[in-house]
Amino acid sequence: MKLDLLTTLNAERAARRAAIVMTDVASGNGRLVKAAEVAKDPLQSILAERLRTGKSGMVDSPEGRVFLTVYVPAPQLVITGAVHISQTLAPIGKLLGYDVTIVDPRTAFASIERFPDVKVIAEWPDKALPPLGIDHYTAFVALTHDPKIDDPALIHALSRDCFYIGALGSKKTHGRRVARLKEQGLSDADIARIHAPIGLEIGAISPAEIAVAITAEITARRREEGEAEPAAAPARARVAS
């Protein structure tokens, strides 16, 4: 690998921009494709798919047998609600390698003492979310139970192509949420991308157990990427709370 390629790659990574290094393993020649350049690359379809899934691997391409090393930004986990579940969800998220941010405008909830070592923003979603750069490498979880906070945040997350979007609430609560979101003009396909009731069905009862169910579901979505479209994925029973 050329040093200038490595230097450029590290600069892209530092700026949280995805990039792919293509290495011809026979000759050792490599080239760097930045995420913004993928659309006009001769191997556009292969590279776009890799960028979407974040998976590195060997590929037979028109340029020969090449190894694609895919570098995507560290995943982030954005949570609305500095609530009881978040107190476990945030540390588990960190252990799993996510940059965790909690947004809750109710300042009594969003106290730093309850969330040591976690970025807590005591602002409304319309102010707090846009600067976070929510994108395809983001998992978004709505936990406040307050439509004034969760609804606008969900709409923002849906517009940013998050790989996972989950919302706390029973089937009944979610039914009311669906009605509200439809009134806001969201399509059925968009709304179907919200995992609700949230979390894998593991019989979770306590807030900490629900946090485990949520992180399990996020992990499943992250690792299933490319194998099923979210809307076509089989319906699964989930935690109601």
């Binding site: 040093l3 490595l6 230097t7 790659l9 590290n10 990574r13 570098y71 560290a74 390698g97």
Partner: peptide
């Protein structure tokens, strides 16, 4: 993490 490793590769070189 891979970031640390690639940064180390750059810095070492």
């Amino acid at each position: 993490t891979n970031d640390d490793i690639l940064k180390a590769a750059e810095d070492w070189r």
